[in-house]
């Protein structure tokens, strides 16, 4: 069953380039993005900084209003929900933020932080708070309830943030680089916790990350974003083992391997020059691509299915 279905999602940010310029400039932060996530699956959204992956995440939890497009969660389109309806729907979607030092209010104790979503939805229940803390491994809960976030370690903070996200039983969770600020030895712990929770609650998760190795470990499917567009998406192992898009290939070839004997081949591409401000009709990856053809300059390639459940947006295929 499809839990999340995103259709033609677009977000433009207006840009005032010059003081008296009448021309309208837009940053195409997210440009015509479509994907589906099955119930109980984790989809990884991978890309470099500024590719629009965090904007996509914020659109899905409606922290930002989409410029156009549809977001179906459990067959309900939430792209245009407003006011009370939106507030009611919010209990279904939660978000885990990147930096646990920043995503917890420094003046709240753990109890207040975890209780807040319940209070907002009018579902306050002490037992739920205890359960949520236990589920994320903060045991015994009494010991943590009255602490401020600065009295917790980094790993504990992120656990509190996860408890807060799960306390109202959401069906869909967006995790925006939840482990990138954590230390190596703690990171694995939090990743495993997320996997265990997914299994336990049959959660559907969008996992945003810049780290392909983490994405491979966490996700069932992966979508690679470049300058506001999804350039490739499909099964996680398939993307890692058999990448099609030149950008995905370059990205994968740049991941260091923790084995001194493994000699990987680097694919040399240039640094990013163009940004997503009023992009021309051509392929966004054009300047950096080693395989560019004439057509790439004229037309943006459509995302097509090159083999089963493997989609790629490149003129080399199809």
């Amino acid at each position: 069953m499809e839990m999340v279905n995103v259709e033609h999602l677009t977000k433009l940010f207006p840009l005032r380039k010059r003081l008296f310029s009448r021309e309208k400039h837009y940053v195409y932060a997210v440009d015509d993005v479509s994907f589906k996530i099955e119930k109980g699956k984790i989809m990884g959204l991978v890309g470099e900084s500024g590719c629009g992956k965090t904007t996509t995440a914020k659109l899905l939890v409606r922290l930002l209003d989409p410029t156009s497009g549809n977001i179906y969660i459990k067959n309900e389109n939430i792209a245009d929900l407003r006011g009370k309806e939106l507030k009611k729907f919010r209990k279904n979607i939660q978000m885990i933020f990147q930096d646990p030092y920043e995503s917890l209010n420094p003046r709240f104790i753990v109890h207040d932080t975890v209780a807040e979503p319940l209070i907002a939805q009018g579902l306050y229940n002490t037992e739920k708070i205890y359960n949520a803390l236990e589920v994320v491994g903060l045991k015994p809960p009494e010991e943590f309830l009255f602490r401020y976030s600065h009295e917790l370690s980094g790993g504990q903070r992120q656990r509190v943030a996860i408890a807060r996200a799960l306390v109202i039983d959401p069906i869909f969770v967006v995790a925006d680089e939840p482990t990138s600020m954590l230390d190596v030895s703690i990171r694995a712990d939090v990743l495993n916790l997320l996997l265990a929770l997914r299994k336990k609650f049959d959660l559907t998760v969008l996992f945003v990350t810049h780290d392909l190795a983490v994405a491979r470990y966490m996700c069932d499917s992966i979508a690679v974003m470049y300058l506001g567009k999804i350039v490739e998406r499909g099964n996680a192992e398939e993307i890692i083992k058999n990448p099609k898009h030149p950008y995905t290939k370059a990205l994968l070839s740049a991941v260091p391997i923790p084995n001194p004997k493994a000699k990987r081949k680097r694919i040399k591409i240039g640094e990013r020059v163009s940004d997503a401000v009023n992009p021309p009709e051509r392929c966004r990856f054009y300047e950096r691509c080693n395989y560019k053809k004439d057509i790439c300059k004229r037309k943006y390639p459509k995302l097509i299915e090159c083999c089963k459940d493997h989609f790629v947006a490149c003129h080399l295929y199809g």
Binding site: R62, L63, K87, R90, M95, Q98, E116, P117, A120
Partner: peptide, 10 residues
């Protein structure tokens, strides 16, 4: 982010 987090929670 903690303000955004509050917004997401409704």
């Amino acid at each position: 982010p903690f303000i955004e987090s509050a917004k997401v929670s409704g």
